[in-house]
Amino acid sequence: MRWLLIGIVWLYFLVLLVGPILYMASQSFSEGLAAFWAEISRPEALHGFTLTAEITLIVLVLNLVFGTLTALVLARQQFWGRSLVSGVIDLPFAVSPVIAGFMLILLFGPDTMLGALFGQAHIKVLFALPAMILATLFVTFPFMVRELTPLLQTLGTEEEEAARTLGANEWQVFVKVTLPALRWGLVYGATLTVARAIGEFGAVLVVSGNILLLTQTATLHIYQSYVDFNYVAANAVALTLLAVSFAILTVLEIAKARAETTVAEAGAQ
């Protein structure tokens, strides 16, 4: 019975994960290593990787700053509408990314005040980098906040007060006490954000217009290559993204283990 259950889990794992990955890997190299290299170093592919990296980096920085700020406010301040904000933060988890993208299209369309305003200022939001960043921000915003808020609540304010009684000003308190206490939470939240930003497809597809060499990210490039029957290109780029995601996941697991021991230490105190 025990072996049967373990067998089922293995089978499920093989069919769902290992099989497809191995098959994809074999297909990437089906026309040789040179073809694989040619596909991932084509200008279109390189542009896709660069654009994905740019969006991910900008989104990560914005989420680090605003996610930490939001978590601090939610954990520490009592204000009108706090529970509303707290509830709405999870919304991106529940809403389909396509809908998120569609909302941006509506919001910044030429018929709206916002769209007209940016139009007059000759700032291109839709089908350009700004909208792609906004869409990715929308889907990744909850990660940081959800990771840091409970950590801050467990931390409490006593350590910060202790630092103040020892002469530390507010900036020193934040840098020397609050941030170090959050460090593994930050790593964990950042990893999730990066993984999600790299993999985002739906929301970005809607707002980017998928313009070759302009607004085509790595995931959009995979999609486009597949649609164009260029399977080697699709497989090669996909495998590269997969390798990056796997590396990130490894970092995540290490961070999780460290964060858990930190929480356990906090509990022991």
């Binding site: 006593e158 350590e159 007060e161 202790a162 009684t165 105190q269």
Partner: peptide
Amino acid sequence: NIGFVFQHYALFKHL
């Protein structure tokens, strides 16, 4: 310039 000892010590756990 006061010294304050907190009930639950409030030691800096990362130090």
